[in-house]
């Protein structure tokens, strides 16, 4: 087993208008097979990806927002959402999906995946990564 690295995916784009959000999600799911320490950050318009209640039936595009709820199954359990980005957009955590994972080490207890962090806190988290991917 090679050494585990810390991979972070930084999401700054809204869903649907461009392909970035879905591409990022696919890369995360594929990358999860390599059993690295994966985390996601949602900043700027990236926070819009996690808004709950998305319904794309009127625009003829695939609604991929339910896929975020599968991240826990893929052992992606650290999802950071930047508070400043939410505030600027008139949003709060309540507007986002409630994402959870089951903690294998604690008898599969259900835990929150999303952590609300400040820009300063996120900067520290960025600094602690081995590799950062921006979408």
């Amino acid at each position: 087993m090679s050494q585990v690295k810390k991979f972070m995916y930084v999401n700054r784009r809204p869903p649907y208008g461009t392909i970035y959000a879905w591409e990022s999600l696919e890369v995360v799911l594929i990358g999860a097979a390599f059993e690295q320490d994966v985390s996601l950050a949602f900043v700027d318009d990236g926070v819009f990806q996690l808004i709950k209640g998305q319904d794309t039936s009127g625009i003829g595009m695939k609604n991929f927002s339910p896929t975020y709820a599968a991240l826990g199954d893929y052992d992606v359990t650290k999802i950071y959402v930047e508070k400043e980005s939410l505030d600027e957009r008139g949003l709060s955590l309540d507007d986002l999906q409630h994402l959870t994972y089951e903690d294998e080490d604690e008898d599969w207890a259900e835990k929150d995946s999303i952590q609300l962090v400040s820009r300063a806190e996120l900067a520290t988290i960025f600094a602690g990564q081995d590799v950062l991917f921006n979408f």
Binding site: P14, P15, Y16, F48, I51, K52, G53, Q54, D55, T56, S57, G58, I59, M61, N63, S65, D95
Partner: peptide, 8 residues
């Protein structure tokens, strides 16, 4: 409306 709904 449809673009709003898509984005939740």
């Amino acid at each position: 409306g449809p673009d709003m709904a898509a984005r939740g």
